[in-house]
Design a protein around this nucleic acid. Sequence first.
DNA 1: TTAGGGTTAG
Length: 960
Amino acid sequence: MALSLDHQHHRPRRRNTLIHSGLYDSTEDRDEHENESRSKGRTSHHRVLKSSAVIILMCLSLLHVSSGLGTLQNHKLSSRHISFANKATTLPPQKSLSSHSSTRRFSSSKLHASRQSSSLDSRQMTKSQPPIITTLNQQTEALRQSLDGIGSSDFDQDPEASLRPITIMTEMLISYANWISTDPSSTFKLKACEIIDAAFRNVTNRCFAKPYRLSKVNLGMEVLQLQLHSCVGAPLNGSSEIVNGNGDDVDRNVLIPLEAPYNSIPRGTWLKVLRALTSNDINSSRSSSTLRSVKAITSSDDEQWITPSNAAFRILQRLVTGKGVRTAQQMALDERDFNMVLHAYAALSQNQMHSAHRVMALQERTTHAPPLSAVAYSILLKAYGRWKDIKNVEMSILHAQRNSVVPDIVMANTVVDAYVNCGDVDKAREIFQIMTEESDAKGDAYWPLLRPNSRTFNTILKGMAEIGDVNEAMELSKIVESKGLWDHITTNTLVKAAVTAEEFEMAEDILSMHTASFSVDTANGRHVNHPNIEAYTELVNGYAKAGHLDKGLGMMQLMRKRGVEPNEYTYTCIVGALARSNKVRQAKKMIEYALNLNLPRKKLTPIYNAFISGLLSDNWSDNVEGQASHAASVIDALSMLQEMQDLNIRPNVVTVSVVIDGLGRCNPPRCNDAKDLVQHLEFTSRPKSGTGYTRPDVNARGISLSNRKIATALIRAYGRGNDVESAMKAFRRISVPDVVALNTLIDACCRCDQLKIALEVFGKYVSFERWNSDIPTIDSADDIAIKPDVVTYTTLISSLLQLKSKAATKRAIKMYRDMKQTWMIYPDTFLVDTILSAMISSGPIGFNDDDVRFTLTVLRDGEFLEWEGRQYERRKRAVRAILVGCSSEVWKNDEFAYGLMNEDTEDPLFKKKGWNEIDSGFRLWGSGDGNFAEQEENTSVDSFLASKGWNDMNSGFRLL
DNA sequence: TTAGGGTTAG
């Protein structure tokens, strides 16, 4: 369906509900997020602590309100009211006492006034301002003081300080509640509420202001909870503990609701909360191993922890429905409110996309909300592009079209980028064509005429760079230049294209010709953040990866000559390259230099990772010398890990995985050491938990045995150590295993000759029906469905074929068919190679009809793949040699085989050496280059180091 | 509120 441009201008208000491929949920906006909300287990012990805490607090407060006060033990309070008090009980006794005594000092002075007010009769109150006002004002002042230093780590880690605001606010509500029992006039009631509300706003404004911090946000959430719900909390079991001035029993809660409208939260505050919850600071604090979760606002007694995005969604729902929102008339909702939440979900992770769709559905269904715009679709498209989910990229475009959303240049660029990320550069160029065509020439009327900008071109260039199509890229860059749209990213991307194609000279030329002008830091004559630093880094890395370490170091020299300061990325590349070449001393020098850049510690971790990874990257541990050398590298790696910790550079998941892998490649594999290391680092690297507002890590984002990458590395180690049982155990620790973890486990089983177990594992986790059922399956480990990939099938098929049994081969043939037909997975050259070499390895004897058909199928599939040089022809010849010699003649009915047999492509080498030679060398065909000649780069390394002023060769670093 | 570039990992 094509929409004309005219129609697009007056868009129908009708909106399509987004339902497709199971991602568009029709039960969108319930306030319940069962999957996400994690109610904290509340043991009876926990309850006892809570109640005793509340008793202490209430006694302290109420002691002054009314002497001879009845027992409070029977009060059932919402856990909200007392959570702060609960925290106080976790303090050591003395500290707890002092904490309370400070509260008490405060209470005794402030609440004294409250008592007086309670004992005053209402006649007196109408005459002049009641003392409660003074009390509340004093409490407000104390509150203001308690907020000093909020957000600082000192504040967060001092339970006394961080709990005080909540304590004071609760006390204000207690003062209010007690005063209310004297039945004051409504004028003063409102006045009192206004003061309390202002105090609350004071806190929330601070909590939800930049810089955003989880601890602040959670304090703010607590305040919102207090104002919204504590007042309507649990009843008092019909008891009558509080006695009013007339001696009558008053049956009510300890805390009572504020007068309207102060029992709700102003719209502006909600928007501040929304901004904080969807901010980058709150959502992407990857440095912290603390799970990002915030306290949910609930009307029940339950304490729920949910993701910031889900908390934001709930607030969006409030803004839509007006629940808890203080507003005279319904204000129109801003598109940005929705987009903020949409973005928070979409940027988060792939399995949050159904939540992203709920946000869009909420916006669509809310009549007083603006319609979905190109911005919303840009957010969605970017996310799907990032996950390389081309199916949903196209669905999103289709829905934008159905919703008559007119694309702007941003959305167009997002689509182009999404296609590039999905590896479909042709499709990206097609969109480019359509959007730049005059409308009457358009085949697709959806895309309006748009003027491409630098980003459009750079994005397409990126696509070309990734596939190494440097010629096309150069052609396109001429257009970019002629249009005056060349910027430093164009240079960087074009250099990348040349480097990917290993056209290093061209890359250097591009860089010299298009180096951006940059400002000189006159203070030290150096240039900071050179706009082309990425191109330089690309070159350094490209040279090093291509085996030209000397040239890579030459680039470092050139950078120095041109005054371009290497950054952490550049050092990561060069350190990794040096370490891979076992130039330990030089690598360490480089690290030392990177340390001098005075970067934040966090940025140094990857440099160390590159070092450790390079050090352990040796793959010659199959002989004795190799093993000894590997063992030495492991020691070096471990000492580097120690150095990191000494320098307070925190190892991350990558660091640990790499070291585990190194330990696993020892002979025998050091699996126990690997596991111990994880547990040790898990313990030592965990940040101190302060207030309780930052939740301890329970879900393995950081270093732990249940982290997916770490567990995967361990599985690999156990596989090498012939320990299937432990491998299985390690796998089961992963809450949501991915295909890499699965492949590693299957491989571990196969290595240990446990093919049966491998097939069971495959059967348990790989099910097309379950995978396709669209039901989010996070709850039960048994429901997890993993989409296999070509590696999964390669591992299993290879193992099956190695058994050389009829039954196993039959099973392999079936798996291969399932892979293509059910999962639409196409084989790669490695799989084709694996199968062909296995099938023909025993020679033509016993090669039956099925074997012939299978081999021919695989060979034919291989025809569509990209092979190095004449590799495919060689495989064809190998197969032909088998067919010639085998008794089966089914191939004679096969057109492809017939053509194969009659091709005249005789390989003289093959002719000379015959089948056995080919077989033994089969695997080597793929490796292409035998260029591992040892190069002597010491000269250039040292000259670089010398240029840095480090000419000291004997710095104490051990040379391997 | 939305779009483009470099490193380490499996």
